[in-house]
């Protein structure tokens, strides 16, 4: 029973290995990136960026007729830049608040992308279902390589530039005063976001990549008190939901990306419940101690 449920999937062909590899790479890169975005309160920008990668890719395909990875990457990065520019424009000249500006821009661009995809780009091998929900097992070799390169790059950059990143995340003003290129770091973060979105696109799809970015960071923020711990917990959460999600998708015969996201959300809910219970328990204890010490003698 246990063997059939847990071990057997690994023994039939290499697809389980491959699936877990792909989802772990997505989990690691998104979790690290998500932590910085979370701390900078930019979580919802990930929402916008993930959605506009679609029109970017479709537009790149329509303009160049090619579907190679560099074209897609370029299209998505340009779409990301256009989006952040448009959001700022709408905010400034449209007298809209940030959330409304984000909502106006990315929904419109996403709608445009869907229409282009279903009319002019029909012959592209971009299945709408796949774009939305992803397909962990259908990731091509070159996409897997891209994903691996992106993950290694993100880990390396985070380790190399840990101090500057930390400072720029928590106190941009102080970082600027120290002479750090805060604007460049922010732009780098946005660029990395676009690249990661595209790299994760095939595996988990445009909408579910948001979960891979936000959920680990939010979970880690419930537990961790230091940036190092938060990054580690986020990565651990991502990896755990990747593996458990793969199992869930095998047992239920359902979409593995969806299962990963659901598992991740459940892990968050459990963590939230646990920290809440712990806080209540501590408060009760403190009250008891206070009452005990207030007693005469």
């Amino acid at each position: 029973m246990l063997y059939e449920l847990f071990i057997e999937p690994w023994t039939i062909g290499d697809w389980m290995w491959r699936g877990v590899l792909v989802s772990s790479l997505v989990a690691i890169s998104c979790a690290i990136l998500g932590t910085f975005l979370y701390l900078k309160r930019l979580s919802l920008l990930a929402d916008a960026m993930a959605h506009v990668a679609l029109p970017g890719i479709v537009a790149a395909y329509l303009l160049t007729g090619s579907q190679s990875t560099p074209t897609m990457l370029l299209g998505a990065i340009l779409a990301g830049l256009v989006t952040s520019g448009l959001i700022r424009f709408v905010e400034r000249y449209g007298h809209a608040r940030t959330d409304a500006a984000i909502g106006i821009v990315f929904t419109s661009l996403f709608a445009l992308g869907i229409l282009l995809l279903s009319t002019f780009a029909r012959d592209a091998h971009l299945d709408l279902n796949c774009v939305l929900y992803g397909n962990v097992l259908g990731v091509a070799d070159h996409s897997l390589i891209l994903l691996a390169v992106v993950t290694v790059a993100i880990v390396a950059l985070t380790v190399l530039f840990f101090r500057p990143l930390q400072l720029a995340t928590f106190d941009p003003a102080l970082a600027a005063a120290f002479g750090l290129p805060v604007g460049l770091i922010h732009a780098g973060l946005m660029g990395t976001l676009s690249v990661t979105t595209v790299a994760s696109f095939e595996a988990v799809g445009a909408i579910l990549v948001i979960a891979a970015i936000i959920t680990p960071a939010a979970t880690a923020h419930l537990i961790a008190k230091r940036l190092e711990t938060m990054l580690l917990v986020a990565v651990a959460h991502g990896l755990l939901s990747a593996v458990l999600g793969m199992y869930l998708s095998i047992w239920l015969e359902c979409s593995s990306a969806g299962a990963m996201v659901t598992t991740g959300a459940l892990l968050y809910a459990v963590t939230l419940g646990a920290t809440w219970a712990r806080r209540r328990w501590r408060r009760a204890q403190r009250r008891q101690r206070l009452q005990a010490s207030a007693l005469p003698g």
Binding site: R41, I207, S255, Y268
Partner: peptide
């Protein structure tokens, strides 16, 4: 903002499942 994104993606993931 993260709570919103989290709930959005979590529920949508469940729906996809």
């Amino acid at each position: 903002d993260a709570a919103l994104g989290l709930v959005l993606a979590g529920f949508f993931g469940l729906g996809v499942v």
